[in-house]
Design a protein around this nucleic acid. Structure first.
Ligand SMILES: [Zn+2]
Ligand SMILES: [Zn+2]
Ligand SMILES: [Zn+2]
Ligand SMILES: [Zn+2]
Lengths: 137, 137
DNA sequence: GTCAGTAATGTTATACTATAACAGATTTGT
DNA sequence: ACAAATCTGTTATAGTATAACATTACTGAC
């Protein structure tokens, strides 16, 4: 574990911490309204409370939005803020999801940005298919 | 132009052709409801008519859904059905969008699938940022 | 400490995106 | 002509996200 990037959740506001703790306790992605339902009995009552917390957490690199399924998942690394680009690999059968972040992914995006003369702001890479387990069952 | 993959739009149903022609006439992505509005006076009245046409066109590789903006755009190649993987490069300022499809992109996805032991079904790669023009103005 | 600026909260209403369910019409192959 | 498959039309509903406004809490200068 890359301890130099570690930061706890103590810098978060109340609602941000509620959402963050929930997402960390699940490993799967949750929709904003699933989050809302889970947090009703601890004081979250409206979609905006969830979306605002998510917006902040995403900007901090602690949560990612998985675009193709409109859902949110806790970053499985220390925090992607510093680490750059990640990819999501999603099994369409068992719904298992893996966050991959390595040099080949970062440099792929860097190359793509150079090739298209873009100043990159954010990227999303999502691969759907069948995971190893689901291929053989 | 890769003539061997060329196919016109004559194999399409009425609604499919209406949607396809509209998307081809614009180069930018359109939301489903923008499409609906544009096609109201030629007989399209309900969202489902649009979504059903889009579903088919996407399965044919003639249209892509750009996940991060929930919008649809005509494939800028002959048809991605045979050509494999593409990436979208999106300027967040001028909203220009470019579809990139080359060997490096296909092999990146292939490698990612191998590395994660996935049987790939579909992928989406989207890069947001500032285009060359918008960086200098 | 207080004052100003910033960030976070709470609430209601509304906009945008997408699918369910049902009924009927059209096309295609044999 | 018949069955199978595809496409169509319509209403209702589900799911995702933001606008607008009022209020409260935190932070840092002075
Ligand atoms: Zn991450
Ligand atoms: Zn699986
Ligand atoms: Zn394409
Ligand atoms: Zn631009």
């Amino acid at each position: 574990m890359n301890i130099e990037f570690y930061q706890g959740n103590s810098d978060l506001s109340v609602n941000q911490k509620l959402v963050m703790d929930l997402l960390e306790s699940q490993k799967r992605p949750l929709s904003a309204y699933m989050i809302l339902d889970e947090l009703r009995d601890v004081g979250i009552r409206a979609p905006l409370q969830v979306y605002r917390a998510l917006e902040k957490l995403i900007s901090m690199g602690k949560v990612h939005r998985v675009e193709s399924i409109s859902a949110f998942i806790a970053c499985s690394h220390m925090s992607c803020e510093k680490l750059g680009v990640t990819a999501f690999v999603i099994c369409d059968r068992c719904e298992n999801i893996e966050e991959v972040s390595d040099q080949s992914i970062s440099s792929f995006i860097t190359d793509l940005a150079i090739k298209t003369k873009m100043k990159a702001a954010k990227s999303n890479i999502e691969l759907h298919g069948l995971c190893n387990t689901c291929q053989t069952s």
